[in-house]
């Protein structure tokens, strides 16, 4: 199933074969690798091809919605946002995202993630959407705060990156945190 979401400045859609070089152009930056667990630097065309195969596989689509934000004017890839670990028993999912470094601080990440949260509550019928960030990544924490997510606590040494255990801040938003007014933002 093709999912296409729209925001004021972005079209969010699943990457397709052929998008490899556009993805590399947007994501290949040490600051993105430094703030995420799974994104390498340098990021090669082969990494991009693997990723595009992964997001289009039926197994992935069963528990993930992984979309990429293209700028409506330039058609350039600006950011990506996903709902992963979609759990239909407990009605929760984990939100994750990254943004092209040259476009940081322009509100794109919040714009895309906000649309994805609405999708999670309205279309996937979720109750809870949670997100985590490296404890020193205040920019990511600020995105979650702007999205209306609440800080729930910090898990120590929750994941290991390059041999170093890292603490993660946990945030979440519940369906009931959003009033009807908020929903029609």
């Amino acid at each position: 199933m093709d999912i296409i979401l729209e925001t004021p400045r972005l079209i969010l859609k699943r990457l397709k074969p052929g998008d490899e070089s556009a993805l590399v152009d947007a994501i290949n930056h040490p600051d993105i690798a430094a703030t995420t667990l799974e994104i390498p630097h340098p990021y090669t065309l082969e990494n991009a091809a693997d990723w595009i195969r992964y997001v289009n596989s039926p197994d992935t689509m069963k528990e993930s919605v992984s979309l990429t934000g293209f700028h409506k004017d330039s058609n350039e890839i600006i950011c990506a946002v996903s709902l992963d670990k979609i759990n239909t028993r407990h009605l929760r999912a984990e939100i994750g995202y990254w943004c092209r470094v040259s476009q940081w601080n322009h509100g794109f990440m919040t714009e895309a993630a906000d649309r994805m949260i609405d999708y999670g509550f309205d279309e996937l019928n979720l109750e809870r959407i949670y997100g985590i960030c490296f404890q020193n990544n205040s920019a990511s924490a600020r995105v979650m705060e702007k999205l209306g997510m609440t800080f729930e606590g910090t898990a120590r040494s929750e994941y290991i990156k390059n041999g170093t255990p890292i603490d993660f801040h946990h945030y979440a938003i519940l369906r009931s945190d959003l009033s009807e007014n908020d929903r029609s933002r």
Binding site: R89, H90, L91, R92, E127, R128, Y130, T150, E152, G153, T154, A155, R156, H170, A172, L174
Partner: peptide, 14 residues
């Protein structure tokens, strides 16, 4: 470490 709200659903209740 943290308290996650409505983390579990059991018999229809969160």
């Amino acid at each position: 470490e943290y308290i996650s709200r409505h983390h579990y659903r059991k018999d229809g209740d969160f």
